[in-house]
Structure formats: structure tokens, C-alpha cells
Design a protein around this nucleic acid. Structure first.
Lengths: 139, 139
DNA sequence: ATGACGATGCAATGCTATTGCAATGTTAGT
DNA sequence: ACTAACATTGCAATAGCATTGCATCGTCAT
């Protein structure tokens, strides 16, 4: 229901607009992370820059996180609920399928602890695994 | 000595040219991974596209690997010796320092085993850690 | 010497990300 | 409900990196 969508925006301290409701609704329907292009094609006719800024706003407020999967185009996917603007908790692995070219969040596959060399201090981690996803897997 | 540089090119099945000797020589002198821009600035006056293609060639032949560190510009760094064009063995962690904005290879920090969900098959992994490097570390 | 092939340099282009600005919509206070 | 203040939107324009086409040049083997 759109009530639910509205709540999610309000919870993240994002003002309600028609555009934002539509974008969030679209995002919840995705299985894979999407690029700005995907969003533009998937939505009705709408301004690319507005979509871009909507995604940026969502990201700042901790509603979505962005993924650099090496394809050149930034992908976006919904965050888990416990994210906020200051601290993204998206320490899960992202998977890029070389066959279907889709990027997926693997929310249950966390990035393990890494022991860095002396005096290196970690603030953020990003792990992209490329290969073949479950859908494209042969046999 | 340039003899050494020449050998490294020949070993990787790369034809010798003046440009390539210069670029490889420059690369060996770097502590951090460099972008095409860095290379262009660091070398004498030379054509940007040629440098670009030189890096591409090196990458194909397994002499350097490229790193997407999220800054938008692809970085390049020398591979370890056991890489070849078909199989890059750069399964080490890359570290981006938020302070000095440099990207480093951490060749001794390997990416640990990750157990993926059923039927996901890994072919390649890429781990970027962002934070503060040893040089920029306070105290 | 010459012919084939690879490397180089220049021009041009595509694509993504990003900003400026004016118009428009939204919200809060009275 | 009215208005002022502020946020959002849409259009235009730009920046920056990646990439290709093509003509020229160099190099190597016959």
C-alpha cells in the first residue's frame, strides 16, 4: 500500500512528493540493483536529473545505498532498515553476474573481518564478487 | 636498469617500444596505484590516448591490474609476477585513504574465503577498503 | 627494399555524473 | 485562507573519463 511507502519516507526524514513515492515504489519491486538508466526506463516519462537527485537524496537519508560494480554505472538498491544517513550498514556482499549482467545484494553474506597491516584503519568496505548467479547457473 | 624492464615486457609477451619502457619504468617507481591522469602528468609530454592504450595492453597481458576505487577514475598498479592475461591473481585487498586520497595495493592482505548462497559461483572478487592509511594515521 | 603489421597521435564521440538557475510546488505561521 | 520561506522539479549546460576511427609512422622479417 502507498501508506507503507509513505511511512518509510517519513521514517527516514524525507519529505513526501509524488516523484519520491513513485521511485520508492519502483525500487521495492526490484530484485536486482538498478542504475539511473534502468530507473529512467522503468518509470514513466520523467526527468533524468530529478531521478538522479531523488536517488541522491535517498542515499543521503539512508534509504538506499549505491554500488560501484565496475560496469561504470552506479547501481542503487534499498538499504536494510537499520541504515541512516551517517552510517550505512550495508556491509554485505554485492554480486555481479557475468551472464545476466545484473547486480544483486547478498544481504546474508557479510564481509568477514579483515586484519589490515599496522596502522591502517578501516572506515568502510566494499566487496564485489563477480561470477554466475543462481538463476544463470547451469544444470 | 632498463634491461630488467625490457625483460619484464618480453616475459609478458609485450613488444618493446620506447613508450612502453617509459611507462613501465614509471609504474615501478610508484607506491600507490595511479590513474591515467596521474600517468599523463607524471610522464613527459605524451599523448593521453597512447598512454591509455599502453595501460590497456599491459592489463591484457597481465602486467598491471586495474582498480575501481569509487573515485570515478580507474587506477592501475603492477601485478605480481604470477599474473597472466587470462588469469589475474590480484586477489589482494585494495585500500583507499580518505585523507591522502591515494589507493594502495595490500598484497599481503588477501581476500578471505566467502561462502556464497547456494548456486552462486564466484569467478572474481574485488575488495576495496576505505579509511586512513598508515602514513596519514594520527599519533 | 618492401610489404605487413603493430604502435602512435590526433580528432571526435559517447556516456555518466554534476551544477546553475528559473519555475513550481509544499509547508508553516499568522 | 494568505503569504513568506523553503524544498523540489525540470531544463540547459558542462565536466570528466572512457573509447573508437583513421591516417601516419616505425619496425621487423623476408
Amino acid at each position: 500500500m502507498t501508506k507503507d511507502i509513505e511511512h518509510r519516507l517519513k521514517n527516514k526524514d524525507i519529505n513526501l512528493t509524488a516523484m519520491r513515492l513513485l521511485v520508492l515504489d519502483f525500487l521495492t519491486k526490484q530484485v536486482a540493483a538498478i542504475s539511473l538508466n534502468d530507473l529512467e526506463k522503468g518509470m514513466g516519462p520523467s526527468d533524468r536529473i530529478t531521478l538522479y537527485r531523488t536517488l541522491k537524496t535517498f542515499e543521503e537519508k539512508g534509504l538506499v545505498h549505491s554500488i560501484e560494480d565496475g560496469t561504470g554505472a552506479t547501481k542503487y538498491a534499498l538499504c536494510e532498515d537499520n541504515c541512516d544517513g551517517d552510517h550505512h550498514h550495508d556491509l554485505h556482499v554485492h554480486f555481479y553476474c557475468n551472464t545476466c549482467k545484473e547486480t544483486f545484494c547478498l544481504p546474508n553474506t557479510k564481509i568477514p573481518e579483515i586484519s589490515l597491516p599496522k596502522r591502517f584503519q578501516s572506515e568502510e568496505m566494499n566487496l564485489i564478487i563477480k561470477g554466475i548467479c543462481d538463476q544463470c547457473h547451469p544444470d
